[in-house]
Computed example of a mutant assay.
Amino acid sequence: MTDDAYLFLVDKTTAHLGVPPTALGDLPCMDTSAVSAWLAAHDVTATSPQLRLLPPEETGSIPQDAERLPVPLTDEELSRLRHRSAPESLAALEDELLAYRDCTDGRDRLLTRALAAGVPPHRVAELTGENPSVVDAAARK
């Protein structure tokens, strides 16, 4: 697994993969000379419907023959990408976990619901800012 997200081009069979970079707002990596040159080499623009981005832990799903480029993202950008990549059922729970940062009311109940729904413990800790040991304790309840 790499620490970089990957920018890649989809075709008709892989159109469901990834998130269009434009859906994540302003990404400074899109303005770098490396990305500009890569886009030009493949005759696509930053707003092309063929252009997608995947977080590091999901890059194994990119087909071997797909054109790809590693791009560094900040922690906040990576969190937005993971949120947009999540299935709708998990994305709704992730929204609640993000709101959790601002209030602790119902903490244990929310952690338990998220874990039961399949949000991985490391992701629950990342979204809530909660100590991983607290999330692990909620998993054991």
Rank of each mutant, 00 (worst) to 15 (best):
Y100D: 02
G129Y: 03
M1E: 14
P56N: 10
S48N: 06
E77D: 13
E88A: 15
S48M: 06
T13P: 05
P20N: 14
D102T: 11
A99M: 12
E58C: 11
T74Q: 07
E77M: 06
S79D: 11
V19C: 08
L90V: 05
L127K: 05
D95L: 02
A15H: 15
P70D: 00
R52H: 10
T74Y: 07
D43E: 13
A125C: 05
K141N: 13
D3V: 11
I62K: 06
S48F: 08
A91C: 02
G25P: 12
E130M: 07
E76F: 04
S33M: 10
A114W: 01
R140V: 11
P87T: 05
M30E: 09
V19Q: 03
T104G: 15
R68P: 10
T47F: 12
A114F: 00
G129M: 01
R101P: 10
I62W: 05
T2L: 09
V35M: 10
V119M: 01
A41G: 14
L110Y: 01
V19E: 01
S36I: 06
C103L: 08
A99L: 14
L9S: 10
L115T: 05
A91Y: 01
E77N: 09
A92Y: 11
A66R: 15
A138P: 09
P87E: 09
D75I: 09
V119F: 01
N131Q: 10
L69Y: 06
A138R: 04
L39M: 04
P28M: 08
D105L: 13
L98K: 07
A34S: 12
L39G: 02
R107F: 04
A114H: 00
A117L: 07
R82I: 04
S61V: 12
A125P: 04
W38A: 00
W38D: 00
E88D: 13
D26I: 07
V124S: 01
A116V: 10
V35N: 14
G18L: 03
T128A: 02
V44E: 11
V19G: 02
R140S: 13
R68F: 03
A5F: 03
D95R: 07
T47Q: 15
L90W: 11
L111D: 00
S33C: 02
D11Y: 09
L39T: 00
V35R: 15
D75H: 08
V135N: 03
L78H: 11
L53V: 13
V124P: 03
A15D: 15
